[in-house]
Design a protein around this nucleic acid. Structure first.
Lengths: 248, 248
DNA sequence: ACCTGAACACCGTTCAAGT
DNA sequence: ACCTGAACACCGTTCAAGT
């Protein structure tokens, strides 16, 4: 071991190229390495740039903002989603897909929070949407409802991951639980009878029980809404109204 | 919480006292002033401290973190929520309440994003929960479902405000729309037939149409789930399982 | 066109030293 | 206990000057 130099001095062929060429793919790959090494909270432009042996400014050639970078990283991670399911009914497969999605996001709450605002639009997100829409189609949900339903289900999953994932990871979880418990203790039976009565229920259930319940409720709602619409408005027009304007 | 009498300002020579005493109330009031003047994006500890003529460190005597401060500010804003409704049926009043809530949060997307992680637990949030639970009770939703349902409905509203409020306010909205339109244009009919077919539907509808649809679906789901549970598990135990453990 | 160092304009939080 | 200035340890983004 004495003969082995601690650090390979520059040779003609470097084993680890000091400076890989920049590209969207290389940046995303480096981001995954940073996440694996330091956790997703440490994924900043400066940290990422230092791994790539450059300055943060260089990354702006490939991504207009950190949010778009995060979206690309999440899209890459979505490629790891295990979506293959056998011949179960559509509803079970849909729930399984959503659970996989949320479990993935749970590990990266920062990405979940960004995804709420800047949705990934890469190839793997497209695959996810395709699968969700095909499952809803299998379930007999009409196309218009299917599009909005997929959006609703994904938003629910993303928001739950953003909320829950963060809290479970931070040191403040115990303090947060205490704060909520205190708030509940202070509830007056006289002024807030329903909250007082429901307090125990609010804290009840495991996260996965609540998650499963939430998905069932959403899917029930989607099925029920689709049924209602079919019954009351069978001749719904499919012509496109003008592009949606956003409320100020 | 009874309405506090307007603070009798001691008539001194100063029109604007240079240094009001610090307190949770004074800090929240100053935060509302900062928001009104500079917008909610400018609500930082440093900015807030400068309005209060002190250093940011002083605020830590009253709030452990910015998130808890934001939660207190949002709770105060929830006091402005117009919740009085006449004798409409529970469902209409519930939707109206949720729409009011979301319209409020729309204006303060930063607070909405924080509320997703650190829920306000002040007096006005308690009032909101009380009203929601009483409406669900009126709708015949059993207690356990009511608690989880209120949570689901509020999370949906908060997440929608966090997502949409931000986007409509930022300069990047047009760029974001363009990005999505481009992603949709690039969809292959061969590999993603359902997405291609649903693309138009995905962009359709005004925000308020989608919002209304979402609430209807959620409430349908809640009603449907409650009905199913009543039918299939009438003798559900109310004993408390051990405190929920969070998935790692 | 791509890349860079340096600068710009900020952050939240902690802490020793006051009162 | 409350308050403070200063420091600590960072941020994302822009821009002029390179190649």
């Amino acid at each position: 071991m004495a003969s082995r130099p601690r650090r390979p001095v520059p040779v003609s062929r470097r084993e680890r190229p000091a400076k890989p060429a920049l590209s969207r793919e290389a940046i995303v790959a480096a981001a995954l390495a940073v996440i694996a090494e330091d956790g997703v909270e440490r994924l900043t432009l400066r940290r990422l740039a230092s791994v790539l042996d450059t300055g943060a400014a260089s990354l702006y050639v490939y991504f207009e903002s950190t949010d778009l970078l995060y979206a690309a990283v999440l899209d890459e991670l979505l490629g790891r989603l295990d979506v293959q399911r056998g011949d179960e009914p559509w509803r079970e497969r849909l729930v399984a897909l959503l659970v996989s999605y949320i479990e993935l996001l749970f590990v990266y709450p920062v990405l979940a929070r960004t995804a709420l605002v800047t949705r990934p639009s890469g190839a793997h997100s497209l695959d996810l949407w395709e699968l969700m829409l095909s499952l809803l189609d299998e379930g007999g949900i009409v196309r218009r409802d299917a599009a909005w339903s997929a959006d609703l289900l994904l938003q629910h999953a993303t928001a739950t991951a953003a909320e829950h994932g963060t809290r479970s990871r931070e040191a403040g979880t115990a303090a947060e639980d205490l704060r909520i418990a205190e708030a509940i203790d202070g509830i007056s039976q006289a002024t807030h009878p329903h909250v007082a009565a429901a307090a125990a229920e609010l804290l009840r259930g495991t996260p996965s029980e609540r998650l499963a319940w939430g998905f069932e409720v959403l899917i029930d709602g989607v099925v029920s809404a689709a049924r209602t619409r079919r019954a009351t408005r069978p001749a719904q027009s499919n012509s496109s109204p003008p592009r949606a304007s956003r409320p100020s």
